[in-house]
Amino acid sequence: MSVKNKETIAAETEADMRQPEEASRRLEVLKTYKIFIGGKFPRTESGRYYVAQDEAGHKLANVCLSSRKDFREAVVAARTAFGDWGSRAAFNRGQILYRIAEMLEGRKLQFIDELVKQGAGQAAAGQEVEQSIDRLIYYAGWCDKFQQLFSSVNPVATSHFNFSVPEPTGVVSILAPQDSALLGLVSVIAPVIAGGNTCVVLGSYSKPLSAVTFAEVLSTSDVPGGVVNILTGKMEELAPYFADHMDVNALVYCGDDMEMKKLLQQKAALNLKRVVFYDHVDWMSANGQSPYLIADSQEIKTTWHPIENIGGAKAGY
């Protein structure tokens, strides 16, 4: 077999796929875009859908218009999954994130295709997919390292050993970027799950295909069901529930709508969710990835224990 460059392979593959279809006039099988809850792909319980269109107004697919009940189910799944995911060995989480990257790499063309359908240029789409894969690798590596970065052994003055370590905050609801359909999505999910949290994510409304297809990648990547749950639908409709659900510990919002921020902050106050806003983040840039983003959904726990050192011991108070 001769050495071929990427483009040649891609072109030939495309040709291979087209040829038999044309020859036999085989009808294309269309994908049903479903939501992703607890590792399964149900349709929205509401039965509602909306039509995702490309920029020219052509129909891309019928997409689930998720309801608050779907969100509720997703939170239950995320909470159930948290016990296991949050207490897994960090090394194991790292391997699973790496596995997601592997699966994404394998389905690169499908993602490029969908991004192009959703309005991206071919080159930009390729770049976005590759960067998404690399971003997963980046966070796969952080899974068992950020703890050391953000931990401390504290030199207290009493006869105690005292240390502080980050721990996942729990279930995180994420309102993913609207414009960056895949890279933005990956960039907000990865640091949250790398840190041991589970999440419920609302994908882009106008560009929903990547989110659903990414769910298929997750589903084949050893990610336990419920760790990532992905919904499609209207942000204005679902955001209040993302913010006020009493069993959600933190909320991520990617956007700069001041009214939306106000609403989220106010609703989140109901159970004092940690609220994280990523506005004006260029996910393509170096600022789009950082261990500090992992820290955004971590709690610091400090543990004390006496040391048998009579000389150093003083009264507690």
Binding site: N154, N162, T302, W304
Partner: peptide, 19 residues
């Protein structure tokens, strides 16, 4: 699920220790 956990002690505080 708590920010400060005291084992075999309680109500200890120190400027170096996050609370």
């Amino acid at each position: 699920r708590a920010g400060v956990v005291w084992a075999n002690t309680y109500n200890q505080f120190d400027p170096t220790s996050p609370f």
